[in-house]
Design a protein around this nucleic acid. Structure first.
Lengths: 231, 231
DNA sequence: CGAGATTTTGAGAGCCTTCAAAGGCGGTGG
DNA sequence: CCACCGCCTTTGAAGGCTCTCAAAATCTCG
């Protein structure tokens, strides 16, 4: 997407500070008092909520370039926890910095709105998957999602990638138990859709995997042409 | 929230046109070519997706004041269908109208961003419910959600309201079958949490219902103070 | 008043969970 | 460099929550 130099600079202004996080480190817990947002600059993180029976629902996996904790714009207390899955670097900024950005560069407000829409649609896809898809479809969709997101930052990735998740985490993202995730992975393997070795996943039959997952790539079919031209 | 007169006028500009819809009418189907967004001005609607096995997942119920089809900002083809649950009035506007609005009234961009965040958190709550909550909790949460949303436009509503949904629709929203929804409603009734009569629901024990639903009201705990003052 | 939609109820099946335990892998300390 | 330890993966068996199928009862609307 074409941004003006000035807009780029304004966005970069949000990334002036850096905070380094170790694998496993917590950026915020649920109900923490918060007033900062973040841009994830390096690494992979996740957001989740804990239910009162102790179970966990992973809401979203976060990759470089994602805006984290956007809900802190409106909530005094964090509605979700955010944790680093790998060593990571985040760039914190106060929420009024976003207000100032929007005032000085209104076109960026539109860009941010658009990004949030893409993310929102991805969220509704997962909602539909949890509501209506089988366990196998949900696990397959997660694998496809990860490969596609990893490919955004590493163009070299095609059918082989490292899934840095335990089966328990896969379960918490897909609404399944770790035990059943294991059986589903095995089944995908037996059907020759994927193979696994040492934490690395290989897509043997991507077409078949997409079919099994009912997967739709939401980074396709975008139409950004209506954005007013930059000055 | 305090908007300037000018900002109010600008927002009203989005609502210049009206389109009337009959109960059951379709505003857009999945994959329709689209370039308009809408503000719902009257009535109740819903958005949903159809899965390839024919099942339906209701994504969101839409009440007056909601922005509809915001995803049309970025997608050429509609990712979700939108249908009227009651007779309704929507105000269509082209997506570049939103671009123009944001350029002339940057503060409104921040307001819109904030609204989207509230909605996004509501969506993640439902995601967690579908992933991890029991059928009874999901149905109870839907009832609470509807009462609260209806109360936004009709302050007179307290513990009695009309749920204008079939049990099949409740099922499609909660990821259950109509048959099981029926049993869960009955169970809530037997536990004296609600009563039902002629399509009207009464909350007999709201505290107990909130507990059963693990419900969190996301319109609480908002902090909008950081918004730059209007000029 | 009749037809279709919706709600209700029962019985049986299946997907996924729970519980349990063994095997594998990496990491740490001696 | 090896042994040990904890975490993760894998596998089996049994149970339960929710689904499917089916049919009757009730409701709504023309």
């Amino acid at each position: 997407m074409a941004l003006t130099a000035e807009e780029r600079a304004a966005l970069a202004g949000l990334e002036e500070q850096e905070r380094h996080l170790r694998r496993g480190a917590t950026l915020q817990r649920e109900r923490d008092r918060v007033s900062e947002l973040f841009i994830l600059s390096k690494g992979i993180m996740m957001s989740f909520v804990l239910l009162d029976d102790g179970s966990r629902q992973i809401l979203r996996f976060l990759f470089p370039g994602d805006m984290l904790a956007a809900a802190n714009l409106v909530y005094r207390e964090a509605p979700e926890a955010i944790v680093a899955l790998t060593d990571a670097i985040v760039c914190p900024f106060e929420r009024d910095a976003l207000g100032a950005l929007v005032e000085s560069h209104p076109r960026l407000a539109a860009v941010i709105l658009m990004h949030h829409q893409i993310e929102r649609v991805a969220l509704t896809d997962r909602l539909a998957a949890l509501g209506r898809a089988s366990a196998k479809a949900r696990v397959a969709a997660l694998l496809l999602e990860w490969r596609n997101r990893l490919r955004n930052t590493d163009k070299g990735i095609s059918t082989v990638f490292t899934l840095g998740l335990t089966q328990e985490e896969i379960g918490d993202a897909t609404g399944l138990t770790a035990v059943h995730v294991n059986r589903m992975l095995r089944q995908l393997e037996e059907e020759a859709l994927i193979s696994r070795k040492a934490g690395r996943v290989t897509f043997l039959d991507e077409r078949g995997l997409v079919r099994a997952a009912h997967y739709i790539d939401r980074h396709d079919g975008l139409d950004l042409s209506w954005l007013p031209p930059g000055r």
